[in-house]
Amino acid sequence: MSSQLYLSGVNRSFDGFKAINNLSLIIEKGELHAVIGPNGAGKTTMMDIITGKTRPDSGEVFWNNDIDLTKVDEAGSARLGIGRKFQKPTVFETLTVEDNIALALKADRGVFATLFDRRSADQQAEIDRLLELVRLSADRDRMAADLSHGQKQWLEIGMLLAQDPELLLVDEPAAGMTDAETMRTAELLREIAGERSVVVVEHDMEFVKALNCKVTVLHQGSVLAEGSLEHVSANPEVVEVYLGR
């Protein structure tokens, strides 16, 4: 099976601080994969490198085995099929919910194509389907700014799905959600996986447990342990740096 994402020997430091230290990680196609680790373990920097926001100092990052992600910018990574969800829900606040989804919809992103774009019936149908999926059909004409925190999280997930990505990078999706919402989110991510690859960065152990997937523990910028949640939980080092606290 070919890999979706391949990181090998990646390094990145900021002013002498090694945020990523010889990190290697493989995400298989269709895999659901959780990344955990204490603050400062390099989780966000890792996502920045994958999405082209930050360039690594050294190391290899490949997409679908052959595309070098270190030469791609944020928009380029999105066009390749990497969708990223921020920790803090980030939506276009002064646009309507429907417009938020419409902008994310897979389409030609060129300036002039966008200028003369007219929405087709298919696209409208896709928007309606996604709004239904994230339960925001009734709020489609409201400004995104007026949504509740949880609704914004859902809207952002809807936007990600609208991009039709091959890989979703999801940063702490459960933050600020109620227990019920958390469980529903885990369920949704499990549904999405298979068809798409999903990487979830998370703190919340209950949530990771609910995902029931392969776990990678990051510590000081490199992989400390990998395997099932039970497997890594049993690792004394992991307990020392993270779980034990």
Partner: peptide
């Protein structure tokens, strides 16, 4: 204007 970074990650070359 609202979220430049989000726009980039949505695939638009800002």
């Amino acid at each position: 204007r609202d979220a430049e970074s989000r726009t980039r990650f949505t695939g638009y070359r800002v």
